[in-house]
Nucleic acid binder design. Structure first.
Length: 436
RNA sequence: GGCGACAUACCCAAGUUGGUAAGGGACGGCUCUGCAAAAGCUCCAUUCCCCGGUUCGAGUCCGGGUGUCGCCUCCA
């Protein structure tokens, strides 16, 4: 072995093994606050993913949609890396109150009051509107959509288990989870329990701990709720958090591989899901927790449904943008970073998609497969970028560079199709733009 | 007030374990048409909020400062 071998070493084993290592999927796990290699436990045939879905009391705004795009890219990346995926998303159509203190209004009833419809009509209307958004954004349908109101019995059963194991107590308005009996309660969100206790603003009411939450709420005595069910504890409705645990475990088993949601869910919702699920089963609830960061608005407008004004996909379409413009916009940044939304930025994305399509459309007719070493290299780069905690921004850069590369059209065509299985920009078929 | 995040060109944005700033859009220039547009080509950060420090070498590490934002109320 000569010293001059350094050149050939570059193409031999040390780097090849490094390449294999690098092509391993890596995801940021909120539970550990670090990027970890992802793989499936022995004997598990499919990746079990549960994503917190919409509360269907209003339209989804573009911030919500950003999270679903992130989850879609995750799903597509797992498929791209050869995994089978069992993906469950819930539709919250009952029990989500406007406050985590278990004292606010029911969002569904609020939606009904606003629109003059029944809660069931409201749920159906916004569920359909949500599905329409999902389709327009080219988001893959989950393996299963599940509605909270279709799983009332499962939720009651889960509360019963918690009751039998001594994790619950009764107050005048419901059955509560006693977070004081789950020592690891604060760990996931790294909560400062003492600080919460000291916080003057929290009105505990009959709760034993500030972090306790309702598992089952009793219907008010003075009026009849539109949605209520009998239970061993009295007529009422399930608390918001219990639905996710009940449905996730029913459809995916006691332990999930990945649980997703928006970053706002870390502190309360997911912390509560972990507490109630792990207390019920004695097993870890999710191996990976992945959270999408918020979209931010440049100035005055707030991404808050509560404020009454927010941007929906429909609004963007009415302004002449194509849903894929928004998808590309979302893909330009990393899902764990804030993304600043402005119409100037969206214009950028639109122009960017136009010029991208100018390069890829002529390739549409060219069939072919990825054969040459050079093409395989581009594929490996893309695969590594997207597998590195979903670095879509980098992946987009690779797409652009690849298109400039000197490769035969049939290979470029094959690569575009290949990349688009993850990007989901619809580059594999023509796109018509109605607006100017 | 408490806790936390972020700060890269006109805009969006990537940047593994420090090794000498991806990509996209806009703008400008050029080519071809030429009324214009379209299209193609090309240019575009000696520099990463500021000040110190460690280092042969820092956007990347450490300390301090400034700024923006978020959470502690509802939000994906």
């Amino acid at each position: 072995m000569f010293a001059s071998d350094s050149w050939s070493e570059t193409f031999q084993s040390p780097n090849f093994s490094k390449f294999l290592e690098m092509s391993q999927l890596r995801f940021y796990n909120t539970a550990s606050r670090s990027v970890e290699p992802f793989s499936l436990p022995e004997g598990v045939p499919a990746v079990r993913i549960y994503c917190c879905g919409p509360t269907v009391y209003h339209y989804a705004h573009i911030g919500n949609l950003r999270t679903y795009i992130f989850e879609d890219v995750l799903r597509r990346t797992l498929l791209y890396h050869g995994y089978t995926v069992k993906h469950v998303v819930n539709i919250t159509d009952v029990g989500h109150l406007t406050s985590d203190e278990d004292s606010g209004e029911d969002k569904m009833e609020k939606g009904a009051a606003r629109t003059g419809k029944t809660v069931w009509e409201v749920a159906d209307f916004y569920t359909q509107a949500f599905f329409a958004d999902i389709r327009r954004l080219n988001i893959l349908e989950p393996s299963l959509w599940c509605k909270a109101t279709d799983h009332i019995q499962e939720q009651i059963d889960l509360v019963k288990i918690l009751e039998e194991k001594g994790f619950t107590y009764r107050t005048s308005d419901g059955i509560y989870f006693d977070s004081g009996k789950f020592p690891r309660y604060a760990d996931f969100a790294r909560l400062d329990i003492q600080g919460l206790r000291d916080g003057v603003r929290i009105d505990m009411g009959e709760k034993r701990n500030p972090t306790d939450f309702a598992l089952w709420k009793f219907s008010p005595t003075d009026k009849k709720r539109a949605m209520e069910w009998p239970s061993p504890w009295g007529v009422g409705f399930p608390g918001w958090h219990i639905e996710c645990s009940a449905m996730a475990m029913k459809h995916l088993g006691p332990t999930l591989d990945i649980h997703c949601g928006g970053s706002d869910h870390i502190r309360v919702h997911h912390t509560n899901e972990i507490a109630q699920s792990e207390c019920a089963t004695g097993q870890p609830f999710a191996r990976f927790w992945m959270h999408g960061e918020f979209l931010r608005l440049g100035d005055s407008a707030k991404m808050s449904k509560s404020s009454g004004e927010f941007l929906t996909l429909d609004v963007l379409v009415r302004k002449g943008y194509h849903p894929m413009d928004y998808r590309l916009f979302a893909l330009t940044s990393h899902y764990r970073n804030y993304l600043n939304f402005s119409f100037e930025a969206l214009d950028n994305a639109r122009e960017s998609l136009k010029s991208l399509r100018k390069k890829t459309d002529p390739l549409l007719g060219a069939g072919g497969s990825i054969g040459s070493a050079k093409a395989k290299e581009w594929q490996a780069k893309f695969r590594e970028a997207v597998g590195d905690d979903l670095n879509t921004s980098k992946a987009l850069g690779i797409l652009n560079l690849m298109l400039k590369e000197n490769l035969p059209d049939y290979e470029k065509s094959a690569l575009v199709r290949d990349f688009d299985t993850v990007l989901g920009l619809g580059l594999d078929k023509p796109m018509e733009r109605t607006a100017p």
